[in-house]
Design a protein around this nucleic acid. Structure first.
Length: 480
RNA sequence: GCCGGCGUAGUUCAAUGGUAGAACGGGGGACUCAUAAGCCUCAAAAAAUGGUUCAAUUCCAUUCGCCGGCACCA
């Protein structure tokens, strides 16, 4: 039977547009998904939108829409935006307002409750009337709302459901012990373990429907809805039909594979700790691996922010330079695990150096020689060994995998310079043709390796080779 | 405050107890198949102080600077 592979992104809160960090996460997961397909896995790639909660309710109200209408429109925008990232066509989008997800999430709640890990108790929190929202201790400055320091904070005291998170300290630590590669990179794993070691407190996981109706009803209690994060995290298995009549995908891809999750570093706690505890609580196998990305910063490692005017929108990059160029930068120039800077200047420099002058120019020079000097397209065998390249991807070292490809590009340029097939072919046709054919074979292998990284470009190069044509337009036009 | 990490050419990153590598950017050169691309070549770096050592960029300590983690942020 074909081996299966499951991979997921986190679900962006559908309230706002996708930013560069989302592009990074989505494109990384997409690249890994394509790589697994390339090496023969049956892949289930999950992504989608988180659509419940107070903030969405408020945004909908502001826009004068009912929340369902609001999230429906937002989801359409989301889908269009992911197109500009070059996501695979077969990605499964889950929405937390899907009926299927709601059923699954309720079933999950019930399971955790049946296992004795959900209970009711009073929940006290502080509420700022100025902001009209609950405040946590970390929101407060000197015990006051930083936005409305003159107003007294109200204490909210209501009955809520709680998740018995504290009972999972030992189970989690045991699980971590047995799975030393759960979280990549290791320094993020260390942070998560340190957090669990410092002690866990139970969490409130519901809200009173009378105050916040936009959520999934708590099974057996119509007065409450599930608090967003408890609901949202279950998407990773609801998308596979867990807890529904047809859970064959869950069995096939989650239980039968190595479920892998991508997330940003701000999300480590949710994915590596809470979600894992929830899975244990429900008696469901844990995630196999969690890959944590760094953040995209502006030049100088500072935060991107509207007020500083240094925000770079992935949609705009994609529109100006093409989807594959955006993918290239995020997969090669952005560190696989650490924070990395992104600016228009950096992007353009890298684009010109590596895509226009590097890859694009090489395709033109090789294929021009082939077109002019070979009588027929070169026969290609797809059997050659690419294990070294693949081994980087197995470790999610995507930048190193790209370095490997570009090292080959550079080798080919040097080969042409040193051996001058364009000259040889004039004096010794056979020898020249042989060299050119070899170059075409090597170019094809570059195209194969590019498949997960730059799928469109990969296909274009393969098509040129199969028809023995040079590109009519440069693959990547130089930008000045 | 506590814990962890980092500080290397203009920039982004490597490696290493014994001559510090690369890429981009900058200077120069020969060539021409190619997108004035490619190739060759030159200049250019270890935050500071002290210690261990025959030898420290690497190990240790201190100072300075930066970053991350320290729970309801979905």
């Amino acid at each position: 039977m074909q081996k299966t592979f499951y991979i997921t992104t986190t679900l962006p809160y559908v309230n706002s547009d996708l930013h560069m960090g989302h592009a990074l996460e989505f494109i990384r997961a997409d690249a890994i998904s394509r790589y697994k397909k390339l090496v023969g896995f049956d892949v289930f790639f999950n992504s989608g939108t988180d659509e419940h909660g107070m903030k969405i309710l408020e945004s909908a109200k502001k826009a004068g829409k009912n929340p369902q209408e609001f999230v429906d429109e937002a989801f359409e925008r989301f889908k269009i935006q992911t197109k500009s990232f070059g996501m695979s066509d077969d990605v499964h989008f889950v929405r937390t307002t899907d009926e299927r997800h709601e059923k699954s999430a309720q079933k999950f709640w019930k399971k955790v409750a049946d296992n004795g890990f959900i209970y009711k108790k009073n929940y006290k929190t502080k509420y700022c009337i100025g902001c009209e929202e609950e405040k946590t201790d970390s929101d407060l400055v000197d015990g006051k709302c930083p936005i409305h320091p003159d107003r007294e904070l109200e204490t909210v005291d209501e009955e809520n459901y709680f998740f018995a998170f504290s009972k999972f300290q030992k189970p989690l630590l045991d699980f971590y012990e047995k799975n030393p590669n759960l979280v990549i990179p290791d320094f993020r794993y260390n942070e998560a373990i340190a957090f669990v070691k410092s002690g866990l407190q139970d969490f409130s996981i519901s809200r009173l429907k009378s105050k916040m109706p936009w959520g999934i009803s708590v099974p057996g209690d119509e007065e409450h809805v599930e608090y967003v994060w408890f609901d949202a995290l279950t998407n990773y298995i609801s998308t596979l039909g867990w807890g529904t009549d047809d859970d064959s995908n869950f069995k096939k891809y989650w239980e039968g594979g190595t479920p892998t999750q991508y997330c940003g570093k701000d999300n480590t706690r949710f994915q590596a700790i809470m979600w894992q505890a929830m899975l244990i609580a429900a008696g469901i196998p844990n995630t196999y691996q969690i890959v944590v990305n760094g953040h995209i910063t502006a030049d100088g490692g500072i935060k991107m922010s509207k007020s500083l005017g240094n925000v770079v929108d992935p949609k705009e990059i994609s529109a100006e330079y093409g989807v594959d160029a955006l993918r290239y930068f995020l997969l090669r120039e952005v560190s696989s695990f650490e924070d990395s800077p992104f600016s228009n200047e950096r992007f353009k420099e890298s684009y010109n150096a590596n895509l226009a002058n590097g890859l694009g120019n090489l395709v033109s020079r090789v294929m021009k020689m082939a077109e002019n000097n070979l009588d027929a397209p070169v026969e290609i065998s797809e059997r050659e060994d690419m294990s070294k390249y693949f081994s980087f991807l197995d470790q999610f070292e995507i930048t190193k995998a790209c370095d490997f490809i570009w090292a080959e590009i550079s080798e080919m340029d040097k080969f042409i310079q040193n051996n001058q097939p364009f000259k040889v072919v004039k004096t010794d046709k056979e020898a020249g043709q042989k060299m050119i054919s070899e170059l075409v074979v090597r170019l094809y292998s570059v195209a194969r390796m590019l498949n997960p990284i730059m799928p469109e470009t990969s296909n274009k190069i393969k098509a040129l080779i199969k028809s023995n044509k040079s590109p009519e337009q440069p693959l990547f036009m130089r930008k000045d």
